[in-house]
Design a protein around this nucleic acid. Structure first.
Lengths: 246, 246
DNA sequence: CCATAATAATGGTTCAACCATTTAACAAGG
DNA sequence: CCTTGTTAAATGGTTGAACCATTATTATGG
């Protein structure tokens, strides 16, 4: 018989009608009664359905909007649209934790380092022949950008390669986590790091090595190389920061 | 000169007074003008401060509450209290993504596996003599629970050991991520896995191995063992699930 | 056919009143 | 003096009606 460690009862939250409405609509969205793209009825109609005041209903809609479950548009034909659960809320919350001092940029950089290693390892274990072709095409593109000295284009390609490796790794959570972490750390990289020709060549070498390891299914190498790649960023970040403090 | 990839302008969101209020209060919290534990003025007073209606103000408070920045209490002496940014929002959002089918339990299990490995590795690199003592004390406790056949107590101790390893690893983001993932996967473990004496002894061996590796700073071993430990759970979960489908 | 203005649908805001919950003050009794 | 029950006050929760602002559609006029 499956174990049940505790009944997990919740304290009854009295009043808070709007919370009840939030729960009902959320449930409908999660069990697919309402699907992404669907529109909720207008506020004045929903008000009658639930038999509550418009103010209370609007508090419910604010909560659902903040949860990322609906999006609200103005004007004729506007209203609440059911959304796909995305990463914006995770990104925002992580951002709040950074700004409130609950997390440091160092912590995030270290986390990213380990995570990119794991992602590269999975990619090396799962890449198909087509995946390799796709990756090598991107690396060639990055090489061309390096020769031209096109920093912006190189960085875009670099990011595309990481994204492609994430796709190949085949785990949605790693993919989301990588995006959330990247979105939250990017502004620090952008503000502190200058990207020279030398740096580009260095990074291109990293990418070549990682892709080669993935191609040859050397998953341990892929993990180590990806970690080193991120580690170099982190070290540079700390150097810059400690210099800024002086 | 630091690079700036784009100005990152935001589209002006017209109307939405409540959003402006949210931003102002959030800013005050993030820059420590308002500190955790502080109370906001009563609604009727805040209403006058911002010169808005109470309904609009309440929509703002709903958003801030959902973001996890404030908590609202009823009755005399009640009101909005500034909170510490915690993991509840991350946990809830991840839960929404699981329930909406954006993430699978397998994805989360695999993520957890890699992450626990990284955490154990960091712990092995950073553990002090005191940390080792603390860990071995907990393992002894787990051994005692195993002898007594006390499943609940064993699981609590098991969890305490993982938490302690997380503390020793010294990275707040890994700690938070581990908690969020654990909170979201626990109900599946609880519902599907039965915990026998044999299973307990198996897990105790795992824990002994991990702690030994941490003590002797064999970080690669610590990572591998921790991964295997989680991997065993994941495999059992998949077995149970595929059996349930039949 | 196109530009422009009127119209209607819909979310955003306001105001004033009342309800429900909780704490604190206070009174009564021991 | 202390306990206990009662009352009052403070505060969030809810309501209803009215009006404002934005947007898509439709009608109008050139």
């Amino acid at each position: 018989m499956p174990r049940k460690r505790s009944a997990d009862f919740q304290q009854v939250k009295k009043s808070r009608i709007f919370q009840d409405v939030v729960d009902q609509i959320q449930e409908a969205i999660l069990n697919r009664t309402l699907q992404p793209g669907d529109m909720l009825p207008p506020e004045r109609e929903l008000r009658e359905t639930f038999n509550i005041s418009r103010g209370t209903l609007r508090e419910s809609l604010r909560v659902l909007e903040q949860k990322g479950l609906i999006e609200i548009r103005l004007g004729t034909g506007g209203g609440a649209i059911v959304k796909n659960a995305g990463t914006e809320q995770l990104t925002e919350t992580l951002g709040l934790m950074i700004r409130s001092g609950t997390l440091s940029v160092q912590d995030i950089g270290e986390f990213r380092q380990g995570m990119e290693g794991q992602i590269a390892r999975l990619a090396a274990q799962r890449a198909t022949a087509d995946d390799i072709v796709s990756l090598e095409h991107l690396v060639d593109k990055a090489a061309a950008m390096t020769e031209k000295g096109a920093v912006e284009a190189f960085l875009d390609t670099d990011q595309a390669i990481h994204k492609e490796i994430g796709r190949i790794a085949g785990n949605a959570l790693y993919r989301y986590a990588a995006q959330v972490v990247h979105d939250n750390i990017r502004k620090y990289y952008d503000n502190f790091l200058e990207f020279t020709q030398e740096r580009m060549e260095e990074n291109l070498l990293d990418l070549r090595g990682i892709v080669a390891a993935i191609r040859e299914q050397r998953h341990q190498d892929a993990a180590s190389l990806a970690e080193q790649h991120v580690h170099r960023f982190n070290v540079r970040m700390q150097e810059k920061e400690s210099r800024a403090v002086k």
